[in-house]
Simulated assay, not measured.
Amino acid sequence: MIPSVAFACYGLLAGLALCGQALGYTNIFNDLPVYDTPLTKVDHHYIVGPIRTSFEVDTVGTWGEFKHTHGGESIASYRPPVAFCPIGNHSFYFYGYSEGTNDSYYAGTGFAVAVSSLHPQQTVDIHMREDLPWGLMPKSTEDDSVGYLYAYLFVPRSPCVSINDTTSVQFWDAFTDTVTHGSLMTVYTLEDEGKTLRVDRPQHLYADMDENEYEYGLFASMVVHEVIYLYALDVSNYGNSRQILVARSHIDTVTDKSTWTYWTGSKWTAVEPKATAAAPSASVIYELPDDQTFYMSFSIYNPGASIFYSEYHHAYLMIFVSSADTSSYIIEYAPTPIGPWTTNRKVLYTDNTYDVTSSIVSPAFFSSPLINATPGKELLLTPISTDGNLVPNIQKLIFS
């Protein structure tokens, strides 16, 4: 059980490029329960022809509150966005720092291992250990330097993406109090036939807001033919949380930021753009109108979205919440990972019962008793209840 280690180049992460990086941070969780949720791998071309683009919804089923266990007691707790994560043939729910409804406060992140149904109340929760007081997220030396009262807090913004049969990656928002510092990458690797989860944080931050860096991967990420596309929302005063940019990397080198390239509108360049001026219009792959922004509740958080390929729709989908309608999920689609995206801002689903602004939408690419359809036909939603407890809920949306 290793809370934080330095590593050099080795093959643990199935070929991911960690060579040449001087420092990294790792948490290891052993003796996890193993529930098989076979991942459906979808084969498709880079350019596709969208179908079923009316996006009519058949049903939305509510599975109930997402609870966790602390001190032997199962309690509902405030946990900012809950993200569903497929890793190999297993499934997890990852969540940010927790605050209990019994007035207890837990600063650590946590996760739950999902059984085959993916039902929130049929999960095994793994919260904090005495040797890992920050829970899921490995703590860096920079985190320590902030001090206890202003400790870094972390929340996921979008679903993680599968890299290979044992590994997935995800980007998290790092902030203290009311200041967002940037984003970081986590690399999840299942070992020992699924009984061990290794969580690697290759470096403190991948995007540093103090350096005017765009937070690629935080808004959304998606893998197409061994290339990972990393989407960033321009939250600077120039982009005003309305414009999306994109970078890409081969999945084998995604942890090495020097290998990333950035879309300019006509080509990919190795020169990383900075948010020190308005982004060139050609490099913006999608933009909301001037009177709208991508929206997530709690102003200190950066909004996230879900971008993925749906076999059912034969299209790349983007699902988000905007300031124009904070009770509704909005959906757009495109024939390629970089567009052109529609600008219809079609309302996918409206629900005034929950705070959908904190919801992360995940495609259900698994076969199980409650998930059994063409990939993309069913989605998992994670809105927060509005009864005062701010407890995450899990819903399943089924397209017609």
Rank of each mutant, 00 (worst) to 15 (best):
V5R: 13
A8W: 14
C9A: 14
L12Y: 09
L13Y: 15
L23G: 00
Y25R: 03
N27G: 04
D31W: 03
T40N: 11
K41V: 15
V42N: 06
E56M: 13
T59C: 02
V60K: 11
G64C: 04
K67L: 14
H68L: 10
S74R: 11
A76Y: 05
Y78V: 12
P80L: 10
N89H: 11
Y93V: 03
Y95H: 11
T101A: 11
D103R: 14
S104L: 13
G108T: 01
G108I: 04
T109A: 13
G110N: 03
A112N: 12
V115K: 13
S116F: 00
S117Q: 07
V124A: 04
V124L: 01
D125L: 05
I126W: 02
I126H: 02
R129H: 12
E130G: 13
P133S: 08
P133W: 07
K139G: 00
K139T: 14
S140H: 05
S140Y: 07
T141D: 10
T141S: 09
D143Q: 04
G147Q: 07
Y152P: 06
F154V: 12
P159A: 09
V161Q: 03
D165H: 11
F171M: 12
F175K: 01
T176Q: 09
D177P: 03
H181A: 09
G182S: 03
G182K: 01
M185L: 15
T186G: 03
T186I: 04
T186V: 04
T186K: 04
D192L: 05
G194H: 01
V199D: 05
D200C: 09
L205G: 00
Y206R: 02
D208G: 01
D208L: 10
M209S: 11
D210S: 14
N212I: 02
Y216N: 04
H225D: 15
V227T: 15
Y229D: 00
A232W: 05
N237F: 14
Y238R: 10
G239F: 02
Q243V: 09
Q243R: 14
I244A: 05
A247E: 05
A247Q: 04
H250Q: 12
D252V: 11
T253W: 06
D256H: 05
K257L: 15
G265Y: 07
G265M: 04
S266H: 11
S266W: 09
S266K: 10
K267I: 12
A278R: 10
V284H: 02
Y286E: 00
E287Q: 15
F294G: 05
M296N: 04
F298V: 12
N302C: 05
I307W: 01
Y312F: 15
Y312V: 11
Y316N: 06
L317M: 07
I319D: 00
T326Q: 15
P337S: 09
I338G: 03
G339A: 06
T343A: 10
N344E: 15
V347Q: 12
Y349S: 08
T353L: 13
T353A: 13
Y354H: 08
Y354T: 00
S358D: 12
S368Y: 05
L370T: 03
N372Y: 09
N372W: 04
T374R: 03
P375M: 05
E378F: 00
L380Y: 10
T386W: 02
D387N: 15
L390C: 07
P392W: 01
N393K: 09
I394M: 10
L397C: 08
